[in-house]
């Protein structure tokens, strides 16, 4: 019962039915490191790095929304890490998300010491955003260029969830 309840809450959150009032802020990469190091996940995690000031990032978010709608939230979990700055949290990030809720947990990472954590996300990533990490257990793919369609994203997700 608890499991079903948890699942229900999770799916409500992931479908963005609740307004996006839950933004988890992190001062240090360490606080979200588990997203990249925990290899016990048996659902696929789609982790997208973005920011409100990054126009190619905003352009690809609709594909993530349609993919999330089409996929089973018990099998694929969407996670959004925004690199918006601390000083723009109230003025930019919150209003944006109120208007454009995302289908998953939103983290706002404020760790400016980029060189200290970029390689922990993936050595393949140079630091340019957007970037998307798709992972399950010890399998991992990194999309280092913009996603250009829902189909492209779904194919990448499917390639790991087999």
């Amino acid at each position: 019962m608890a499991r079903i309840k948890a699942l229900l809450i999770c799916s409500l959150i992931s479908f963005g039915i609740y307004a996006q009032d839950t933004i988890i802020t992190a001062n240090d990469f360490e606080e979200i490191e588990h997203l990249f190091t925990d290899e016990t996940n048996d659902e696929v995690w789609v982790i997208n790095f973005w920011a409100t000031w990054c126009s190619p990032c905003l352009a690809e978010l609709p594909y993530f929304k349609s993919a999330a709608k089409a996929l089973n939230p018990a099998e694929v979990r969407f996670i959004f890490v925004t690199l918006d700055f601390k000083k723009q949290f109230e003025s930019k990030l919150k209003p944006y998300l109120a208007e454009h809720p995302l289908p998953g947990t939103v983290y706002n990472l404020w760790d400016m010491d980029y060189n200290s954590w970029i390689d922990q996300v993936s050595p393949k990533w140079s630091g340019a955003i957007p970037v998307t990490v798709i992972r399950k257990g010890d399998e991992k793919i990194v999309l280092t260029s913009e996603v250009e369609s829902t189909e492209e994203l779904m194919e990448s997700i499917a390639s790991i969830s087999q």
């Binding site: 990054c54 190619p56 690199l83 980029y114 060189n115 970029i118 390689d119 990533w125 140079s126 630091g127 340019a128 955003i129 957007p130 260029s145 913009e146």
Partner: peptide, 12 residues
């Protein structure tokens, strides 16, 4: 030293 660092930035 360091002779190589990474940073968040915009895609070219």
């Amino acid at each position: 030293d360091p002779n190589f660092t990474k940073a968040v930035g915009c895609t070219i």
